[in-house]
Nucleic acid binder design. Structure first.
Lengths: 206, 206
DNA sequence: AAAATATGTTAAACTAGATTAACATTTATT
DNA sequence: AATAAATGTTAATCTAGTTTAACATATTTT
């Protein structure tokens, strides 16, 4: 394993998933990897803990090493709306709050014990200035996130609830196993009762 | 006016709206501005013309100087779904097609005679490498676009059609004047008949 | 000015999905 | 093993928004 030859010990090891992820998009030198590591931190959260609470300022952006989070919004009537889930190799934060350093609209809560690598807003800004390749990296991943978000808007308008569910379960089969059905219903923008009905209908169909 | 003192003639002038827009986020030196200008082009399109057609590869990303475009998707049943509008100082393209250089999912059509400044995919990549400040600029504007997109998803799930319309008309009063109502209905994800009903109801209310 | 095209309205019948409420099953806690 | 808490199901009733179809009004084009 590469980290052993660079620098023994567990130091590099725990950041390796992020480094691998970044190197798939831009390639960092060993010096850059070390500099990066000096600006990030590792964090373990238990099931149920909040990475971010609505109203707080989002200080960190997190890259998930293991576990699962849900991002949700509680409206004036107290209704929860799930905005997204994140699993291994995904990013989580309230980007709007993070980039403007204003109170968050969303909560980020762990659905499982979760380990993540986090950037603080200041450190991320610093490191992007120190390593322009990382500025490039973040531009590229935000572009991808934006494209995915636009596609989701289109799906929400052009597909029925049943088709959105089928799309979700084919795209993210791992998530379907790990996440309670009522949260998936909320993510799809429907009630848990209606998702239950859809699933029964699909079972009867074949 | 500044462009006259740098270099007389209309050369800088027509790119000035973009330069001003960029300088609000990062500040370019005069050399950088000149380098930028050498990589972009100006284009006039007439009402009805397409900036991009579904299935083509999106070669350009456009910054609108004057006019208005709609981005829309035609589904298998031939139904049009408006994804977004863009007016002065907004960007338009099919980002998914542009970044991957794959066939576009969407059409971009001019609703008015439109003048825009365009970047080709290759030139934009080049210029971001030449001027890291522009890499930063694009990261920042895509972050903002992503935040706006996420907020739209939340609004679509948590607000009624009437409230989405009220939000749209308060946020973009200029657009409401310029854009036919049936296209606004499509953008809001409802039928033109239902938007008509909502507007009548709002009139009766006061 | 007339005809054609694009845009907007109204109303009746319909449907996808919400609401309510009772019950069933699984998982965690004591 | 028993109880509590979380998750999932079913069915009846309801409603926000769709569909269809006919008509009305602007705006272009000839």
């Amino acid at each position: 394993m590469r980290f052993i030859t660079i620098e023994p010990g567990i130091f590099m090891q725990k950041f390796q998933p992020l480094i691998d992820y970044i190197n798939r998009i831009v390639s960092l030198t060993e010096e850059e990897e070390k500099l990066l590591v000096s600006h990030i931190s590792y964090r373990k959260l238990r099931k149920g803990q909040y990475f971010l609470q609505q109203g707080d300022i989002c200080k960190f952006s997190g890259f998930i090493v293991s576990g699962c989070t849900k991002t949700f919004y509680v409206d004036d009537e107290g209704q929860e709306h799930v905005i997204m889930f994140a699993v291994e190799d995904w990013w989580t934060s309230d980007m709007g709050s993070y980039i403007a350093q204003k109170p968050a609209d969303y909560n980020v809560q762990c659905l499982e014990n979760t380990e993540l690598i986090q950037f603080s807003y200041e450190e991320q800004d610093l490191i992007m200035r120190e390593i322009p390749k990382l500025e490039r990296f973040f531009r590229i991943i935000v572009e991808k996130a934006f494209v995915a978000s636009q596609k989701r808007i289109v799906r929400n308008f052009s597909m029925s609830a049943k088709d959105r569910y089928l799309y979700f379960s084919s795209q993210y089969p791992q998530m379907e196993q790990r996440i309670p059905q009522y949260m998936i219903a909320s993510y799809l923008g429907i009630t848990k009762e209606f998702l239950s009905k859809i699933k029964r209908q699909l079972l009867l169909d074949q």
